[in-house]
Design a protein around this nucleic acid. Structure first.
Lengths: 207, 207
DNA sequence: GTCGCCTGACCGATCGTTCGGTCGGAGAGC
DNA sequence: GCTCTCCGACCGAACGATCGGTCAGGCGAC
């Protein structure tokens, strides 16, 4: 670094803020109105530039969607593995508990991106590609649930396929109401995990 | 009935099948592609008539949505009350259990309509109206959850507001994967209720 | 004839996208 | 220090396509 200008040079000359900032704003618009109902003019207005300027940073509307879904999927799959340095879980049930808490955290951190992913319908090749990757993720969860049932860690009579669907539904539903900055959400990942294993409305212990 | 033709006369001269059949087909298209991404031409093609013929039965696209959402909301609210002749539940917890099972049944019976409702974003006055009615429904559920916690029927430490959201999320997630005609879904309403009160993955009893 | 149902042709508006051109800061040459 | 050139960011105008919706009329049953 011969001068500080080298590091500072990343600052854009105009107020757009670069592709990352544009993507952030676009995803918010997509979530507010829905992808199809959001026009390129909506996006450029939210970004403070003209429609044609937007095409200088992104190839088109679908490229924007692709970039957003990619980020969401990467986040999701990162929840499958323990962070480096952590000793592996003892059984499938404990592994599931860790995944659930991590997935909720991903959902909270990348809320707009994951929300967008969860609403994809499959209208375009990009959307179908995302749907397929999401299906692969769900299959991993389902396999773990099956392993936990087979290991005898789960009460007899629970259908693994149904349990896996309800588990995903419960976890993902957080995206429909969680908003960052809410008080009392620091324990949300653990709260959701507790709801999975003990019930959303567990009966009171007989006093 | 002076002749058998009288009963048969309901059969249309042309293949449309009347407003109800049109609404059924339209809702299926809405769910497959999303409301905004579905054009009136898609709808008329699915119904086997031309676009302009469609306007003979419905005032427009939004009227179609309104009729569908109305049906979904009526179904939802019908789950709040016991059917006539049934003695009332003893406590809020038992009342919640009955509502959950009935709501799942409504979801299974009117799957496309409820699915459409659960995806509404609020872009038009009709959508905002539906969102408002749905919010009122959720408030009823939340009040019941609070009552169950206050009555001491739920394990101490459970946050009523969070529990109500997770409950709705778990129940409504059924719409994302349930398809009529699946085997082993006769017990689904009770299975979901069990997951709410005992957990999606309840720990095995120590043998 | 009349009425219910249906049709093809057409409307203005808006869609995602493209294109030619403007603007201003950065770097090179002197 | 002062030009000259370059280039990335930006813009206005317009493209063909498609959108939701309209309209005047045809056709068959009663």
């Amino acid at each position: 670094m011969t001068s500080s200008a080298q590091a500072e040079a990343r600052r854009p000359r105009r107020p757009s803020g670069g592709p990352e900032s544009l993507l952030d704003k676009a995803v918010l618009e997509f979530n507010a109105r829905g992808y199809d109902a959001t026009s390129m003019e909506d996006l450029s207005r939210a970004a403070g530039i003209t429609k044609s300027s937007f095409y200088h940073h992104f190839a088109g509307k679908e490229a924007l969607l692709r970039a957003a879904l990619e980020r969401a999927l990467d986040g999701l799959f990162s929840a499958l593995d323990d962070p480096p340095g952590v000793e592996p879980a003892v059984g499938p049930s404990e592994r599931l508990r860790r995944i659930v808490t991590r997935q909720v955290r991903v959902l909270m951190d990348d809320l707009p991106y994951v929300t967008l992913l969860l609403r994809v319908r499959g209208n375009t090749p990009t959307e179908r590609w995302a749907l397929q990757r999401r299906k692969a993720y769900d299959a991993e969860i389902a396999a773990l649930v099956r392993a936990a049932v087979d290991a005898g860690e789960i009460r007899a009579g629970v259908d693994p396929a149904l349990a896996a669907r309800l588990l995903s539904g419960l976890v993902n539903s957080v995206s429909e109401w969680y908003r960052p900055g809410r008080r009392g959400t620091a324990s949300l990942p653990e709260d959701v995990a507790r709801a999975i294993f003990a019930g959303v409305l567990p009966a009171a212990d007989p006093a």
